[in-house]
């Protein structure tokens, strides 16, 4: 390929990446060092916005909550996603229909799904699950006003909405496992759990890593579902980082673009930190490939 052809093919992608990724990132970093309102030139304030965020106990709590939610949800997604994918992989002609039904929670906008999910637990709006659990346990559970019940509800909703994605990707990975490898293990008399643990899971390790990377990025940016599920998030300590950004920087027509940008830069750093082990693993595999 000639150099001119190479640049001809690569240039559109580079332009799109620069326009949609590099420029916004540059602007975000620049604004994070300014006090700036919509449509106005900012005033340089150094690291004031970072200081404001890092000395705010609410931000610390938001980071803690978001990281805990991410760890719990991603672990659950990988385990349940793998189990579900294994079950679906064993289906015959009904597989497309089952897959279609399972995908519903993924295609519903999160804020809508969150509102619908909240009704299951809200005694004021029927609250079927709340009724069943309260009857079973003999006491009312304050799903929206108590910290841990609310966290459980938020985690359940996040898993519910993201599980189809994890299942679908892992299913694709399972379908790429060579049949002869599985048959060889079965002929050797490997029990089912060892077949999965020693043969299939190592084979789809890259796929599981991919699911983890995407899920970590998604859960760290949790926002929509909290609007419906955690109206008292600030008081409960269940404010995610993105909700914190919205609340302190943009709620009710606020215009703290500088503070919002600073928190977003910190969030990008957090995402990179949490993805580092996975990206390092992928890079290592690529080197050995």
């Amino acid at each position: 390929m000639r150099r001119r052809e190479f640049f001809g093919f690569v240039a559109p992608s580079v332009l799109v990446m620069a326009g949609l990724l590099v420029l916004p990132l540059y602007q975000t970093i620049a604004w994070s060092l300014q006090r700036v309102n919509y449509g106005e030139t900012g005033t340089f304030v150094g690291l004031d916005n970072y200081t404001h965020a890092l000395t705010d106990p609410r931000f610390g709590q938001a980071v803690l909550f978001t990281v805990e939610l991410t760890l719990v949800v991603v672990a659950t997604l990988i385990v349940l996603g793998y189990l579900l994918a294994t079950l679906v992989n064993g289906l015959g002609r009904s597989r497309p229909f089952v897959l279609g039904i399972l995908l519903v929670s993924y295609v519903i906008p999160q804020v809508v799904g969150g509102a619908m999910f909240s009704w299951l637990f809200n005694s004021n709006f029927g609250g079927v699950l709340n009724f069943l659990l309260s009857t079973l346990l003999g006491q009312d559970i304050l799903w929206f006003a108590s910290t841990w019940p609310n966290r459980i509800m938020v985690a359940l909703n996040t898993v519910w909405s993201m599980l189809p994605f994890a299942m679908l990707v892992i299913l694709a990975g399972l379908q790429s496992v060579p049949e002869e490898v599985v048959e060889a293990a079965q002929i050797d008399g490997a029990p089912t759990w060892r077949l999965h643990w020693n043969v299939i899971i190592p084979t789809v390790r890259g796929t599981l890593g991919f699911v983890a990377i995407i899920s970590i990025m998604d859960v760290l940016r949790a926002f929509d579902q909290l609007i419906a599920l955690s109206p008292q998030a600030v008081q409960l300590g269940n404010e995610s980082v993105m909700l914190y950004v919205f609340n302190v920087a943009f709620q009710d027509g606020g215009q703290q673009l500088g503070l919002g940008s600073a928190v977003n830069v910190l969030l990008i750093a957090l995402i990179c930190l949490m993805l580092y082990p996975f990206i390092r693993g992928i890079a290592r595999e690529a080197r050995h490939a």
Binding site: L99, G100, V112
Partner: peptide
């Protein structure tokens, strides 16, 4: 055909759910 079925089921189900609101 399977892919079409999958798409139809997903779209129909999501429309049915979203139509509630």
């Amino acid at each position: 055909t399977r892919l079409t079925c999958l798409a139809v089921v997903a779209v129909a189900a999501s429309l049915a759910v979203s139509a509630c609101g």
